[in-house]
């Protein structure tokens, strides 16, 4: 049974994790953004980091007692109204398939769709940036059509390049730099998502929206 109450747990003495109840959805995420904005102003909190319908609060120093902050967090959640972020719409040209999409065949095999159907379904929605995480500049996106959901790979790929557009389970994302991944790469884009010399260093923020534009399909 899915609880209708949020869950709060400790991440050692460094942080705590707040998890919203219910299925993953945008309205809940908008409340998470509101909660993050409020909690990051609390003196005992160093950073408020949204995840997928959850929020990590790192401590500036571990509080003597955790109960007061947990109570405050629950109350703030009850009061939190969805924060509609006036995000930007970013368009990413994607080359689907070919050398830049080495796992397209696996997605075709799993879904039973052909490459044109997969590209059409993947590039149709406007994806919302729910949160950043994983590696510098990486975005967790909401809104993928579940017809193209494909399980993570049994053996992770040692390194996929920055710009790789991939599907992992029910989610899709774009790698911001080279690194290991268990997701299925179906295409590639040239966008630079992170530059430590920029302020802010990450191109995208929670609440921004992303569209994949078909630059080319290599069959």
């Amino acid at each position: 049974m899915i609880s209708d109450q949020p869950r709060i747990s400790l991440l050692g003495t460094s942080a705590l994790l707040f998890e919203a109840p219910g299925a993953t959805e945008l309205a809940t995420q908008q409340r998470i953004w509101a909660l993050a904005r409020e909690a990051e102003a609390w003196p005992e909190i160093r950073e408020a980091v949204p995840g997928m319908n959850n929020l990590m609060l790192s401590f500036s120093s571990p509080p003597r007692r955790c109960e007061p902050i947990e109570t405050r967090l629950r109350e703030a959640w009850q009061a939190a109204m969805p924060l509609p972020v006036d995000g930007r719409l970013i368009e990413l040209p994607v080359v689907y398939g070919g050398d830049g999409g080495p796992h397209m065949a696996d997605v075709i095999a799993h879904t039973g769709l052909d490459i044109d159907q997969i590209v059409e379904i993947h590039s149709a929605p406007t994806y919302v940036v729910y949160a950043l995480g994983s590696h510098p500049g990486y975005c967790y996106l909401g809104g993928m059509d579940q017809r193209i959901a494909t399980p993570r790979r049994k053996t992770p790929v040692v390194s996929i390049p920055g710009g790789a557009v991939s599907i992992g389970g029910a989610q899709t994302g774009v790698s911001a730099s080279d690194g290991p991944s268990g997701w299925n790469t179906i295409g590639t884009t040239a966008m630079q998502f992170f530059d430590p010399a920029r302020d802010p260093p990450a191109l995208l923020r929670p609440g921004d929206a992303l569209r994949f534009r078909i630059a080319e399909v290599i069959r």
Partner: peptide, 10 residues
């Protein structure tokens, strides 16, 4: 579990 923040030590 859904993707969430973690810290060293987890």
């Amino acid at each position: 579990t859904r993707s969430h923040g973690i810290v060293p030590g987890v």
